[in-house]
């Protein structure tokens, strides 16, 4: 580590003040790296151990099996893993929303960047959910006017990213104009308001999704996305998500 010697003059102050023991005459500062060259203190290590083992046991207990490996880069405008995530949010959050409001979620919009890891072929555990969604983001439902639903479609057309969606269908032409769109297989009525499930990051304007700022109402479900994934994994035997035609671009 490099040490630079800097002498600083506090001339007046020092020459007038009493040299009591409370005078600082030298300060040394450095930031020390904690790494594997330092021995772990055994008493601390053994205190942590039961907590770690308990967590690992729970995190690694097998909930389901994935038939393949899925990554958010496998696909252009929709991916198997993104479709799974958005569908899980719809499937798990809609009953909660309905119970609370008597209304149903119309569609789901998440963000591509919110998928934080791949799903590996083989056993699915709670750890998978923690890896996919390490953040505490939770599901919120926006009551959004049709005009902003239009903005949302334009946003997705322009972004050309596989932002996960569920119950929404978008077809772009080769110039990325929206040529077809539907919600739950019905044409979109831009004079109506829709209930859109998303996460608390996007509702606050994350990823430039400013249209959510026009929400007439935001219903907080107190339901973390990670927990929705875990709940889904627990009742599912085999994960076999697919890339489909929910968000596509026509070649010509």
């Amino acid at each position: 580590m490099k040490f630079k010697n800097i002498f600083l003059v506090l001339g007046l102050l020092l020459s007038f003040s009493c040299k009591t023991p409370s005078d600082v005459y030298k300060i040394e500062g450095k930031n020390v790296n904690v790494n594997d060259s330092i021995q772990a203190k055994p008493s601390i290590e053994s205190f942590i151990k039961p907590y770690r083992e308990n967590i690992n046991k729970d995190l690694d207990s097998i909930l389901a099996y994935a038939v393949d490996t899925y990554s958010k880069s496998d696909g252009h405008l929709n991916t198997a893993i993104g479709n799974l995530m958005a569908d899980v949010v719809y499937d798990e959050a809609d009953p909660v929303f309905f119970k609370r409001t008597g209304a149903h979620i119309d569609f789901v919009l998440l963000n591509h960047g919110g998928i934080r890891s791949i799903i590996s072929k083989g056993p699915i555990t709670k750890r998978t959910a923690f890896e996919m969604m390490p953040f505490e983001n939770s599901i919120v439902v926006s009551k959004l006017p049709g005009a902003q639903v239009k903005e949302l479609l334009d946003y997705l057309a322009k972004a050309k990213r596989a932002h996960p969606i569920s119950q929404l269908k978008i077809v772009l032409d080769k110039d990325a104009n929206v040529v077809e769109s539907s919600i739950k297989k019905l044409p979109i009525d831009f004079n109506k308001t829709y209930y859109i499930a998303t996460n608390d990051y996007l509702i606050n304007g994350g990823d430039g999704m400013d249209f959510f700022k026009a929400s007439e109402e935001v219903i907080v479900l107190d339901y973390k996305i990670r927990n929705a994934l875990i709940d889904y994994f627990m009742k599912t035997d085999t994960l076999n998500p697919v890339m489909d035609d929910r968000f596509i671009q026509l070649k010509d």
């Binding site: 002498f7 600083l8 030298k26 500062g29």
Partner: peptide, 10 residues
């Protein structure tokens, strides 16, 4: 506490 003041070594 010499005349040059507080020395800071960082």
């Amino acid at each position: 506490t010499s005349a040059e003041g507080v020395s800071i070594l960082v």
